[in-house]
Simulated assay, not measured.
Amino acid sequence: MRLTFIETFFYGCLFILFSCEVPFEDNARLLVKGRVLDENNQPISDADIAVSTREGEGFIFGTDLEFLGDVQSASDGTFEIITLFGRDQKFVVDVFIDNDYTSYRYITDTEFFTPTDYTIDLGVVPIKRKADFNFNITRTSPPDIELQYTLEYMNNFCSEVYVDEQLDEDQTNCYETQSFGGILNNNNPNTSTQIQSFIGAEVTFSYSINGQVEESQTITIDQSEYDFNFNY
């Protein structure tokens, strides 16, 4: 019997649905542990740690995370959680405090890899207090003065990817340095913007006036709302 297109599509959906379930190992448990500290190495209690793995990957259902369990950090910032061990391309640990702090994500592939002693030790989780850096340049000099500038800063996002317990720097994005710049002149003499970073991060402002030698200054963000004003 030849199947119609609709029947073929229906059975294909069922195949994708049931073939993409995460295979959990029988009688196997995984220990996930670590310690949550802020930028001053002070412990953070009551941080939420959630462990998930992937399920339902396909052209119909997309990719979702299957929740395996959660726990909160203790008064000294430590945490331990025992979960099922699934064989999948994505095993995820998320650490979140609240909107005043950065979050952290650990990702690894457990499809063919088994962590040593069935343990994933995150060590110190790099959580930091968020900060807004308000950047303002105003021209106070006469017309026909041109300013060329760049701003380098560290973002407030941290996601680490591990392959066989080794950090994969190519896939990792953890407090990366980003930059932008521009030219200010008669048509556009002023600029103002806000970037999201974290307390303790360094921002480097470099500029050149009318093509002269470039000058730079480095600012350390030491408060959640930091205003940087520059006149030329």
Results as ranks from 00 to 15, higher is better:
Phe59Cys: 11
Gly77Glu: 08
Thr102Ser: 08
Thr116Asn: 15
Ser206Asn: 08
Gln217Asp: 15
Thr119Cys: 10
Val124Ala: 12
Phe180His: 12
Leu184His: 03
Ile107Asp: 02
Ser19Met: 05
Tyr207Glu: 09
Glu21Lys: 02
Tyr162Trp: 15
Gly34His: 00
Thr204Glu: 14
Asp144Val: 05
Glu215Pro: 01
Glu21His: 06
Gly62Trp: 03
Ala50Thr: 03
Leu167Glu: 08
Lys33Asp: 02
Val163Trp: 05
Ser103Arg: 05
Met1Ile: 12
Gly69Met: 07
Ala28Gln: 11
Arg29His: 09
Glu165Phe: 12
Glu55His: 13
Gly181Glu: 02
Asn231Lys: 07
Asn188Cys: 08
Asn155Ile: 11
Tyr175Trp: 07
Thr53His: 01
Glu66Ala: 13
Val163Pro: 04
Asp38Glu: 04
Gln89Asn: 14
Tyr106Lys: 12
Arg35Phe: 01
Glu160Gln: 14
Tyr162Lys: 06
Ala201Lys: 03
Asn187Ser: 15
Gln223Trp: 04
Ile145Ser: 15
Val203Asp: 11
Ile107Asn: 00
Ile145Thr: 15
Val51Ser: 00
Asp168Lys: 04
Ser206Val: 07
Ser73Met: 02
Asp98Thr: 09
Ser103Ala: 09
Asn155Gln: 11
Ile221Arg: 15
Gln194Val: 03
Ala74Leu: 15
Ala74Trp: 04
Arg2Ala: 10
Asn156Trp: 11
Ser75Trp: 02
Asn156Phe: 10
Gln196Pro: 01
Ala28Asp: 00
Thr4Lys: 10
Asp64Ile: 14
Val161Ile: 15
Pro189Leu: 05
Tyr101Val: 02
Gln194Asn: 15
Asn173Pro: 06
Ser73Gly: 14
